[in-house]
């Protein structure tokens, strides 16, 4: 049963990935991406990576996709249809991608032997929390801190980039005062 569901999910991921990059309507594209992300989260659930799956859904599917949809609605008409890519350009890109796929396939033939190792215990929430905050071996406190700084910087940067009009306006006032 689980096996069948897993294969269905994998198929969904592939199909919707292709639809994401080929759909003519940008909003639909975003929704297809959402489907891919949710299917990925479902596979994480099946692998018993519950925390990862939860993060995937809340942050990725919930956060990022909603953000993207907002920006789409800010910049597009809902009926807007994107023009299709130029044929030769699409061909060349496809060729490059296919070449890379072929190369990966060649590498993956070594991965056939990878089998499930016995003795898998689903990671407990407690272990994950401890690992994130420990600084010994298998400890991730440094990346954890770095990522927090990165997120802060990204947030401030995003505000600064997206709100230039406000800054300019203030500058103008300042200049007028000056004169």
């Amino acid at each position: 049963m689980e096996q069948i569901i897993t294969y269905i999910l994998l198929a969904l991921m592939l199909i919707f990935s292709v639809m994401t990059v080929t759909s003519g309507r940008i909003l639909r594209s975003a929704v297809y991406l959402l489907t891919v992300l949710v299917a990925t989260a479902a596979i994480y659930f099946i692998m018993q990576y519950q925390f990862l799956a939860a993060v995937q859904i809340t942050l990725y599917a919930g956060g990022i996709v909603v953000l993207i949809i907002f920006s789409i609605l800010l910049t597009h008409h809902i009926e807007h249809r994107m023009e299709n890519p130029v044929f030769w350009k699409a061909m060349i890109s496809a060729l490059a991608a296919l070449g890379a796929v072929a190369m990966i396939a060649w590498v993956l033939k070594d991965a056939q032997s990878i089998q499930n190792v016995a003795g898998f215990i689903p990671p407990k929430m407690e272990d994950i929390g401890m690992a994130l905050l420990s600084y010994g071996k298998q400890g991730y406190v440094l990346p954890f801190e770095v990522i927090s700084v990165l997120l802060l910087a990204a947030m401030i940067g995003a505000i600064a980039v997206a709100k230039p009009a406000l800054l300019q306006f203030k500058n103008k006032n300042f200049k007028q005062d000056d004169q």
Partner: peptide, 9 residues
């Protein structure tokens, strides 16, 4: 990006 990808490949 295309040059980059082909280069990587």
């Amino acid at each position: 990006a295309f040059v980059f990808v082909s280069g990587v490949v």
